[in-house]
Structures are given as structure tokens and as C-alpha cells.
């Protein structure tokens, strides 16, 4: 296997692992995939055609300049005090079409994936499929690859009641 293909395979494994951790609600392992200073961004659509391009000037569904905002969300779920998270919705993430957006290097991967996430809301006995694509910037650190930047594009942005990080 060429080095480029091996690097891409390592990146793809990380993306698949992220989905598995979300589905199995292994939150500590999930958040450990992200660098402390990672950017996590789910832009809104500003019209039927255009996505927001600047989180400092346009609305985001979620925008965090570092990992601490994601930690808030795990605290909220674990508190057992959030009606929207109790009982926890169950998910199945399908991550596919992983492409390198630039030539992989041993230090840095820039990937695009297509994803769908089936979410079952036990409270209402209903299911919904969120879907879209994601851009990842993944950086090599001492202990392996970490997500440095993740941008999630939600293609069906007509949200049934609620959306949280594990739904996408």
C-alpha cells in the first residue's frame, strides 16, 4: 500500500471510530478524538442555496472555537437533568465516501466524508435521519491523530424538535 493510501486509511478509520463512539455513547473516547484547541462548526444555511461562511458574522447551529463547548454538551447529557436527552436518543452513524481533499502527509490529513445518522427518539417512538457531509482537518500529535477542525454540513436543516452533536 502506498504511503498516501495508508494515511488515508488511518484517517478513514478515525472517522469510522468517531461514529462508533457516538453510537455506543462512549463520550470520553469520542471527545478524546478531538484536539483541545479544535474548532467544531455546524454552519446554518443562509438561504436554500448558500451556507454560512463566517461563524463570527452568521448564525451557526453549533460553533465552538475549542473543545470546551463539546464538553458542556457531555456534562448536560450526563447530568440526567435534560428532558431532551432523557432517555437518550439512540443513533446509527453511517460514514462513507471518505476522500482526501489534499494529498495526505504524515503530519496532516484534510478529509471529506458523507454521513447519515439515523436517530431514534425513545420519548416519542419516532425516528429521523439527519444527513450531510463533513470536512475534517486531522493533525498528528504525540499519541496519534487528533481532529483539529470539523465542519459538519447538515443538508436537511428542517429540524424535528431538536438536534445535538450525537445526531450528526
Amino acid at each position: 500500500m502506498s504511503e498516501a493510501r495508508a494515511l488515508l486509511a488511518a484517517g478513514e478509520e478515525l472517522l469510522q471510530r468517531e461514529g462508533v463512539y457516538l453510537d455506543e455513547q462512549r463520550w470520553d473516547e469520542w471527545i478524546a478524538l478531538f484536539a483541545l484547541d479544535c474548532e467544531y462548526w455546524v454552519p446554518t444555511w443562509t438561504s436554500d442555496r448558500a451556507l454560512a461562511t463566517d461563524p463570527q458574522r452568521e448564525m451557526s447551529h453549533i460553533y465552538y472555537a475549542n473543545r470546551q463547548g463539546l464538553e458542556d454538551r457531555i456534562v448536560r447529557i450526563r447530568s440526567g437533568l435534560s428532558p431532551a436527552s432523557t432517555p437518550m436518543p439512540r443513533t446509527a452513524h453511517l460514514v462513507t465516501a471518505v476522500l482526501a481533499l489534499e494529498a495526505p502527509t504524515p503530519e496532516r490529513l484534510n478529509l471529506r466524508s458523507t454521513w447519515s445518522s439515523h436517530v431514534f427518539f425513545p420519548r416519542r417512538r419516532t425516528s429521523h435521519t439527519f444527513f450531510g457531509y463533513a470536512h475534517y482537518e486531522i493533525a498528528r500529535r504525540e499519541n496519534g491523530w487528533l481532529i483539529q477542525r470539523k465542519k459538519v454540513v447538515l443538508q436537511n436543516d428542517y429540524i424535528p424538535s431538536m438536534l445535538d452533536f450525537y445526531c450528526i
Partner: peptide
């Protein structure tokens, strides 16, 4: 502020 946040 630009951005669509519609839900039902």
C-alpha cells in the same frame, strides 16, 4: 443576522 434556524 444571516442564518436559517427553522424547526418544527
Amino acid at each position: 443576522i444571516p442564518g436559517r434556524a427553522n424547526y418544527f
